[in-house]
């Protein structure tokens, strides 16, 4: 692709479970995307600042701490506050179905659960970003 998809993959809050985020980061990189990994223990403010500075298409957040109902809405609010609702916020982790539906209603993109093939995540991002860039 001439203009590769730029993704910030991030860990927000105190959660140190980074197996999934690293696997996804490697898979996105191997699929030809430009991947920036935030490292652990970031605040929503840090992540949004980095997303804007790095001019990414996607912010993909991994949360396995149970704090998803606080942190996803906060990131969304900060992105929107900066006028960057063009950035796709999506993610994954241990997120119960009900919470997932609620977050998606707020405007969060897909939230992938355990066992998701990385190919499915790649395909989703390619499709979403193509649609957004086509606008």
């Amino acid at each position: 692709m001439d203009n590769p998809i730029r993704v910030l993959v991030g860990k927000v809050g105190l959660d140190g479970h980074d197996r999934g985020v690293k696997v996804v980061a490697s898979a996105l990189r191997d699929a030809g995307m430009e991947v920036i990994y935030s490292g652990l223990h970031q605040t929503p403010e840090n992540v949004v600042r980095a997303a804007i500075e790095e001019d990414v298409d996607v912010v993909a957040i991994s949360i396995l701490s149970g704090a998803h109902m606080t942190l996803f809405p906060r990131i969304l609010e900060l992105l929107n506050g900066k006028g960057r609702d063009d950035v796709l916020l999506c993610g994954g982790g241990i997120i119960p179905e009900k919470d997932r539906e609620e977050l998606m209603k707020l405007g969060v993109g897909n939230l992938f659960g355990p066992g998701t093939p990385t190919t499915e995540i790649v395909a989703y991002l390619e499709k979403e970003i193509a649609a957004r860039r086509g606008k």
Binding site: G13, L14, H41, T43, G66, T70
Partner: peptide, 10 residues
């Protein structure tokens, strides 16, 4: 502030 959303959760 960094504890927000995680107090007593896990």
């Amino acid at each position: 502030p960094i504890s927000l959303g995680e107090v007593g959760v896990e």
